[in-house]
């Protein structure tokens, strides 16, 4: 591998890592901070991608309006879901959470099949971002991929700011450590969790919408990202936003170079990495304080 190929592969790895982080971010909130094992996370991602496909004609094909409309709908969806289902799960054991969220996967897949059908769809990126940049001697790099990476970094910074620098973030962090204590201090923890959950769903849906032009839209797409998202969150340390960020980048590099250097084993490398890291640090790279 010569230097220029190596650098392009590094860019690929970085870009894939950021995409992974974008997808896993919502799970970090719901699983990492609220402690609910949410298998339906992949479904929210899938819903996002299908929204990018189905909502676009309603707003005249405007990509940015679609994003905004999708996020608004996602917040409503997350709020209602928390009220109807998830609020009953906090005190239950993990098995019940798994069962219910698995049930939600089946319901969402079936609804998707009924409402939109089972076809594969491609989404065009907005015109402004549809171009490519020359890279190396014959390759080009799509601008849209760089845009997604940029969006991911923005979201990551925003989330980091909210959690570590604002009063809201402080209350959420406190709630994740001791729910009852926070409640007894006069904070409406129920409402707070509803907001966090809605935010988690909205971020997953946003990730799906942003990823749709890159990944295309197809049945079962949510299940594919679900497992790798859990790997990211576990490697990063449950509850750590910073940890998930570095874990996603790490997996991006391992996956990209694994595919090129040891293709026979590329399917298992991410999981081997997870096993090794858990042996070394059983709580993940950055345990939440």
């Amino acid at each position: 591998m010569d230097l220029s190929t190596f650098l392009i592969q590094c860019l690929n790895a970085l870009q894939y890592g950021l995409l992974l982080y974008l997808v896993a971010m919502g799970l970090t909130l719901i699983f990492g901070i609220m402690g609910v094992i949410n298998l339906a996370h992949g479904s929210f991602y899938m819903i996002g991608a299908y929204m990018a496909f189905a909502l676009a004609p309603m707003v005249g094909g405007n990509f940015y309006l679609t994003l905004i409309l999708g996020v608004v709908l996602a917040v409503v969806l997350g709020y209602v879901l928390e009220w109807a289902f998830f609020s009953y799960l906090y005190d239950r054991d993990h098995l019940q959470q798994v069962l219910m969220t698995y049930g939600l996967i089946l319901v969402f897949e079936e609804l998707r099949s009924i409402l939109v059908g089972d076809d594969v769809h491609g989404i065009q990126p907005p015109e402004l971002l549809a171009g490519t940049l020359p890279l190396g001697d014959i390759m080009t790099y799509p601008v849209y991929r760089l845009f997604v990476s940029g969006m991911c970094i923005l979201l990551a910074l925003g989330m980091y700011y909210v959690f570590s620098r604002t009063r809201l973030g402080m209350m959420i962090r406190a709630g994740s450590v001791n729910r009852e204590m926070v409640q007894s201090l006069g904070i409406d923890i129920q409402f707070l969790y509803r907001v966090v959950f809605a935010a988690g769903v909205a971020i997953a849906v946003l990730a799906g919408m942003l990823a749709a032009p890159i990944s295309s839209v197809y049945p079962g797409m949510g299940n594919q990202v679900l497992i790798i998202c859990f790997v990211v969150v576990v490697i990063g340390g449950i509850g750590s936003i910073r940890g998930a960020f570095f874990a996603a980048l790490l997996i991006g590099f391992v996956d990209t170079f694994g595919k090129v250097l040891v293709p026979e084993a590329s399917g298992v490398l991410a999981y081997v990495l997870m096993a090794l890291i858990l042996l070394w640090k059983p709580n993940g790279l950055f345990k939440a304080g």
Binding site: T5, I8, N12, Y16, Q224, D255, G267
Partner: peptide, 22 residues
């Protein structure tokens, strides 16, 4: 022969490889 595990769809690394192999 390039390949990736089913149903992985992250092709970017292998496309770069193709560009290098010409």
């Amino acid at each position: 022969d390039l390949n990736l595990p089913f149903p992985n769809v992250e092709f970017q690394a292998l496309l770069t490889e193709i560009a290098a192999l010409k």
